[in-house]
Amino acid sequence: MEILEGLFLALGVNSLKELGESAKTSKTLTVMIIVGTLLIGGFFLFLYLMAKAQ
């Protein structure tokens, strides 16, 4: 969990609760979170499938 806390600290977000509160008020941030999650998930799926193909 320390890695996520460090990442959020680097991004200027103190906790997931604050990120959720900010996302409630900002449609742009909500879309960015969703798109980023999908892109990162797709990238890891791609890596998994490429490693499986070996």
Rank of each mutant, 00 (worst) to 15 (best):
K52V: 05
L49M: 08
A51M: 10
L45Y: 13
T25Q: 04
L4P: 05
E18R: 15
S22Y: 11
L7M: 08
E5Y: 14
E5P: 02
F44I: 08
V35G: 03
V13M: 01
A53C: 03
I34D: 07
L11C: 12
F44R: 07
S15V: 05
M1R: 08
L49N: 13
M50N: 15
L29Y: 00
F44N: 03
G12C: 02
K17D: 15
L38H: 09
G6K: 09
M50K: 13
Y48T: 10
I40M: 08
L19C: 02
G42M: 01
T37Q: 00
G20V: 04
V13H: 01
M1P: 12
I34M: 02
M50G: 14
L4I: 10
L4K: 04
K27F: 09
G36I: 00
I34L: 09
K52A: 13
I34Y: 01
L45V: 07
T28C: 02
E18P: 02
T28Y: 11
L39E: 12
E21D: 14
T25D: 11
S22T: 14
S26H: 02
Q54T: 14
T25G: 06
M1W: 05
L19W: 00
A51K: 10
T37K: 00
F44K: 12
E2Q: 14
N14V: 10
A51W: 07
L16Y: 02
V35K: 03
T37E: 00
L9R: 11
E5N: 09
S22H: 09
L9I: 06
A53R: 11
G6M: 08
T28R: 03
G41L: 09
L49P: 09
G41I: 11
L9M: 08
K27D: 12
A53G: 06
F44P: 05
I33H: 00
K24H: 14
T25C: 05
I40C: 02
M50E: 15
Y48D: 09
S15P: 13
T30I: 03
L29M: 02
L39H: 04
Y48H: 07
M50F: 13
T25N: 07
E5I: 06
E18S: 13
S15R: 03
E21V: 05
M1V: 13
E5T: 06
K52Q: 15
K52F: 09
E5S: 07
L19H: 01
L45F: 08
T30A: 04
G36T: 00
L29E: 01
I40R: 09
E5G: 04
T30Y: 02
L7A: 11
K24A: 08
L38Y: 05
I40V: 13
N14D: 14
A51L: 15
E2N: 14
L39A: 05
L16M: 09
K27Y: 13
T30S: 06
L9D: 15
F46A: 04
T25M: 07
I33R: 00
G6S: 06
I40Y: 12
S26C: 02
L11N: 04
K27C: 07
K24V: 11
Y48K: 08
A23Q: 02
Y48V: 03
A53K: 14
E18V: 10
V31I: 06
L7G: 05
I3R: 12
K17I: 15
K27I: 07
K27W: 08
S15G: 04
G41Y: 12
T37A: 01
E21T: 11
I34S: 06
